[in-house]
């Protein structure tokens, strides 16, 4: 999670029981006890938001399959005060690029909150766009997070903190904290959806069963390890109930293991009759 202000961070830190990472001083960073949720407080502006993404990616050793969420406050002339929105298009008032966070878990019947355009500006303004919301971090956040992660796992959500009737000058730390805290249930749903997708993406590339076990007992070169991984994945697809370890001769060398696995796989007919059935779209 990337937030600009301490007042935005506080309710999130409390909700996920995160504690301050005392080993870093460049940005306040918070993490929960099992290391699944990280939060960085970047300060105001798109440049620091982008920098913070890079910093947190390094600190948390983020992978391509980790999810990124920008949470903050925004102004709007069309959404009422306290509304939570999710960005479907992020445009930068000072640049030429737009970003389009994926709408995988949005849409009719699924809408966790309304989606709209987020316009990122360089300084606070009381001029509101005709539609959507305006704020100061999302474009920097998206530009950086979509480099480190997968587009489908990068989102920005904003709580409307000011409108033409409730101008920016009236924003206080307390009402920022309150706005975020009031929407915690919806924020948590978004976080959980992202985590589900992240887990799914991670499971796709997870190592096959017995891969690490075999590598611990026999020394495979890098190239042989790749072959072993491919063979064990084939094994999982064709014979998920058969233990490959039982097929390997004692005192095997890497070459013999690979040959034995390949030999069995190449002579095992592929049977599609027991595969999972998917529904038909009927179009």
């Amino acid at each position: 999670m990337v937030v600009a202000l301490a007042a935005e961070a506080k309710p999130l830190v409390e909700h996920w029981h995160m504690t301050r990472d005392s080993t870093v001083s460049s940005f306040p960073i918070f993490v929960n006890s099992d290391g699944t949720h990280w939060l960085i407080q970047c300060g105001v502006g798109k440049i620091v938001a982008a920098t913070a993404v890079g910093f947190l990616a390094q600190r948390a050793q983020a992978t391509k399959n980790d999810a990124w969420l920008n949470i903050g406050i925004a102004g709007s002339a069309t959404h009422s005060l306290g509304t939570l929105i999710i960005g479907h298009k992020i445009s930068d008032a000072g640049g030429l690029r737009n970003w389009y966070p994926s709408q995988i878990f949005q849409g009719p019947g699924l809408g966790l909150c309304p989606s709209t355009e987020i316009q990122t500006v360089d300084r606070p303004s009381d001029e509101y766009p005709k539609s959507g919301v305006v704020e100061m971090e999302a474009s920097g956040f998206c530009g950086a997070a979509m480099r480190f992660g997968t587009v489908e796992l990068v989102q920005a959500i904003k709580v409307v903190s000011d409108t033409p009737d409730h101008p920016i000058a009236q924003i206080t730390k307390e009402n920022v904290k309150g706005s975020i805290a009031n929407k915690m249930k919806s924020i948590e749903l978004v976080v959980n959806e992202l985590l589900d997708l992240s887990r799914e993406a991670t499971s796709i590339s997870s190592e096959p069963l017995f891969y690490e076990e075999l590598r611990r007992s026999i020394h495979f070169t890098v190239a042989q390890s790749h072959q072993l991984r491919r063979l064990l994945r084939r094994w999982e697809a064709v014979m998920p109930d058969r233990d490959p370890m039982g097929e390997i001769s004692e005192k095997s060398t890497p070459k013999i293991v690979l040959a034995e696995l390949k030999g069995i796989l190449d002579t095992t007919p592929i049977d599609f009759s027991h595969s999972s059935k998917m529904p038909s779209i009927q179009s």
């Binding site: 479907h88 994926s102 709408q103 995988i104 009719p108 355009e117 587009v151 799914e200």
Partner: peptide, 29 residues
């Protein structure tokens, strides 16, 4: 009922290097 989003060129949304086909296939636009 669909959300309509304007873009300058379809390449802004389609086939970016950091997209995941399998995740996107869950709910294509």
């Amino acid at each position: 009922q669909a959300t309509k989003i304007s873009c300058e060129r379809y390449s802004e949304v389609f086939n970016l290097s950091s997209q995941n086909f399998r995740l996107q296939k869950k709910r294509p636009a």
